[in-house]
């Protein structure tokens, strides 16, 4: 049953995603191309005289208006012209592409934990009696406030340091895929999953509680519908679309936080590459990894919005 409004809403979702992607690219462009100061001086290591600098600026287009520079920069990236690393002189693509899979495996493992946890927590807290539901929501909100750095440290302290159940670092020998050594994935995946599960659970629990308080749900109970039918028929349909959006946000959080978690555990993923590149002022690598991670988040949110639209109707 496709009518005009859902179609228009879908187009709006895509337009918004496109605009966000452009905004993201502007932020990255500003960070790597504009803010660091005079790129021409930087490229010559400060040894060139004024006249040579001016020639270089003209040749590389540094005197063009900012929007033209952004356009040619973005066009280059779109053509696959990702440049070479300033630190290693290797093509950025060679650095980035092997790490995509590693990060995908890690965030996938984290979501395997986080998604069921979010749904279970939200249902448990959201459908509890009002007093308990409020307390549960408060506890989840407080847990979500704990900085991820603390979660990482405490997990390592307890599970690796004190109990020695799991390795404290996830350093893999080159060429060994992470799935061959699943034990190295457990701690980083938990570190990614737990904070976002608390956050997403708190958010979704509120939605579930609101849905349970709707007059038609109360009416269904008065009419003697058994709880499972009340939940399936009268509550779940109103939680579905928000749940898709919250889960997408949880996934986005996992992708963003991969930078922290991968670095702490020494896991060779995209996030660890980004952090290393930021530390080494390796602008081309920062640009590509930052954009790639950001685009994954933006596309994920757009897909979630489309799915949410499809299930709402």
């Amino acid at each position: 049953m496709t009518s005009a409004p859902p179609l228009r809403a879908g187009v709006a979702v895509l337009a918004r995603a496109g605009a966000t992607a452009v905004l993201l690219s502007v932020v990255v462009f500003a960070a790597v191309e504009v803010l660091p100061g005079d790129a021409a001086a930087a490229r010559t290591g400060g040894r060139a005289d004024a006249a040579r600098l001016a020639r270089l600026r003209e040749a590389t287009g540094l005197d063009d208006p900012l929007w033209q520079r952004w356009l040619s920069w973005a066009a280059g990236l779109l053509r696959g012209d990702w440049g070479t690393s300033l630190l290693t002189d290797r093509p950025v693509a060679d650095l980035v592409l092997p790490r995509l899979a590693a990060t995908a495996v890690l965030t996938g493992a984290a979501l395997l934990v986080a998604v069921p946890l979010v749904l279970a927590l939200a249902w448990l807290v959201g459908t509890a009696r009002p007093g308990r539901s409020r307390v549960g929501g408060a506890v989840l909100t407080a847990l979500a406030a704990v900085p991820q750095a603390v979660v990482v440290a405490v997990l390592v302290l307890v599970l690796a340091g004190l109990l020695r159940w799991l390795p404290a670092v996830s350093l893999l020998p080159p060429g060994v895929p992470p799935l061959r050594r699943p034990e190295v994935l457990v701690l980083p995946a938990l570190a990614l999953a737990l904070p976002s599960a608390a956050w997403g659970g708190a958010l979704l629990a509120g939605v579930v509680a609101d849905a349970c308080a709707a007059p038609h749900v109360r009416d269904a109970r008065v009419r003697g519908m058994p709880p499972w039918r009340v939940h399936r028929d009268h509550v779940a349909p109103f939680v579905l679309a928000p749940a898709v959006r919250v889960l997408a946000a949880v996934a986005a959080g996992a992708v963003s936080s991969a930078a922290l978690v991968e670095t702490v555990f020494g896991y060779r993923g995209l996030g660890e590459l980004l952090v290393g590149a930021v530390a080494g002022r390796d602008a081309p690598v920062v640009a590509v990894t930052g954009l790639l991670g950001g685009l994954v988040v933006v596309v994920g949110a757009a897909v979630a919005d489309l799915v949410a639209l499809a299930v709402t109707r």
């Binding site: 963003s256 602008a283 920062v286 640009a287």
Partner: peptide, 23 residues
Amino acid sequence: TAALDLLAALPLLLVALVLAVAV
């Protein structure tokens, strides 16, 4: 509201890290 929606859609941790290369 539309402008804020765009801003809110940015992954802020990644933004912070990318900015840390310059400032």
